[in-house]
């Protein structure tokens, strides 16, 4: 393990360290996914304001032990050692210390909102636990150290050298950001409304796949069109098109199953309007890698991108999870063994051009999978 500065021994953090504190209470807040530091500060202050008793009133407090390890954070009753709260470390979004007060922010599942504008903003429920401890700062430092140790373990497990992360400048100049998608999606000429006439009870005749995590426009993608079906007959749809709305209801950010359900729901209609962004089935990512020692920032399994380092050169270049690599620097790799693809990628430097398509689309186009038409 690399040395991570902090008040604890790494070995101790793996097993777990206990700190005495007084539990003041908990509250819940709604939060964006990765709020800026100023928002986090306001959230921590808000949590303290809600939990703290007003001046002049007695503050209810429960003596507890905070158990901190690289896997979990638990709040234990001081005497009984019974767990009051138990959170996996990766669900702790952040911690705040304000003088003798410590605030722990645990992310809960995505708040399912029925209001479309909130769904677009992807609000998360945050559970905020507030504690009082004379050494709140020390506890915060120990939790910060546990974050760093767990993070470096995670990077190693994913084949990324932790010394390469964070040591180089985080965000390079916008000039180094390639994202063909950004130009494409912002060009209104690529967006259109497609009207499809059909018989009542007839399906649209489209197969959908996910655009993939990391996509700038997370929504359903047309993977196939049923021959002779209403979608194909209208002549305005092609494989790769993003479906952003159906009869005016947005599909952006919804899980694939929800997009499919929305399309099934219009089976009884005789006319349907799809809002689409016309996209080619294959996308190009351009990774600027100064030398072949620099981490590419993604993992490949059998030609499919299975994970992506946030902020890495691959993500900035437009690479996304769930896509199959079709070409590397103009060379087709569809029939290339995994080991050779890895070799090609590790050798590549300067400007690496990678052409990809959603793996599910690829499987449908090559007949490895049968399309399910909606």
């Amino acid at each position: 393990l690399p040395h991570v500065p902090g008040p604890c021994d790494h070995e101790d953090l793996l097993d777990g360290v206990l700190f005495g504190a007084k539990y003041l209470g908990s509250t819940q807040l709604l939060s964006e996914r990765n709020p800026p530091p100023s928002t986090r500060m306001a959230q921590a202050q808000e949590a303290v304001d809600r939990v703290k008793a007003p001046d002049g009133e007695t503050q209810p407090m429960t003596p507890v032990d905070l158990f901190v390890s690289t896997k979990r954070i638990k709040v234990l009753m001081a005497n009984a050692q019974e767990a009051l709260m138990d959170h996996a470390l990766q669900t702790i979004s952040y911690i705040a210390d304000i003088g003798p007060v410590l605030v722990l922010m645990a992310r809960r599942r995505l708040a399912r909102s029925t209001r479309p504008q909130e769904r677009e903003r992807r609000l998360y429920k945050m559970l905020c636990h507030v504690f009082h401890a004379e050494d709140a700062q020390l506890i915060a430092q120990a939790i910060g150290q546990a974050f760093a140790v767990a993070y470096s373990q995670f990077l190693r497990e994913n084949g990324i050298d932790p010394s390469q992360v964070g040591s180089r400048p985080r965000a390079t100049s916008p000039g180094h950001l390639h994202n063909g998608d950004l130009d494409h999606f912002s060009n209104s000429e690529n967006c259109r409304e497609v009207h499809i006439e059909k018989r009542r009870g007839e399906g649209l005749g489209v197969a959908l796949v996910e655009s993939g995590w990391g996509s700038l426009l997370p929504t359903a993608v047309i993977a196939n069109l049923l021959h002779g079906g209403p979608a194909e007959r209208c002549g305005e749809l092609s494989i790769g098109d993003r479906v952003t709305a159906i009869n005016g209801a947005s599909l952006v950010g919804l899980p694939l199953a929800a997009c499919q359900a929305a399309i099934r729901e219009v089976k009884s209609h005789t006319a349907v309007t799809l809002s689409i962004v016309h996209c080619p089935p294959v996308t190009t990512a351009i990774i600027r890698r100064l030398h072949s020692r620099e981490q590419l920032g993604f993992c490949v399994e059998d030609g499919v991108i299975c994970s992506l380092l946030r902020g890495g050169i691959a993500e900035r270049g437009g690479v996304r999870v769930g896509h199959r690599i079709i070409e590397i620097n103009g060379q087709s790799v569809v029939a290339t063994p995994h080991a050779r693809i890895v070799e090609l990628l590790t050798e590549a430097h300067d400007e690496v051009h990678i052409r990809t398509m959603p793996a599910a689309t690829y499987r449908l186009l090559t007949g490895q999978e049968q399309p399910v038409y909606l």
Partner: peptide, 21 residues
């Protein structure tokens, strides 16, 4: 007193929608 925020670096790797109930 000063307010210090320590963000979990894992946060940026978490797939959307993850968390604990």
């Amino acid at each position: 007193s000063a307010l210090t925020i320590t963000v979990n670096p894992m946060e940026k790797h978490e797939a959307p929608g993850r968390g604990e109930e």
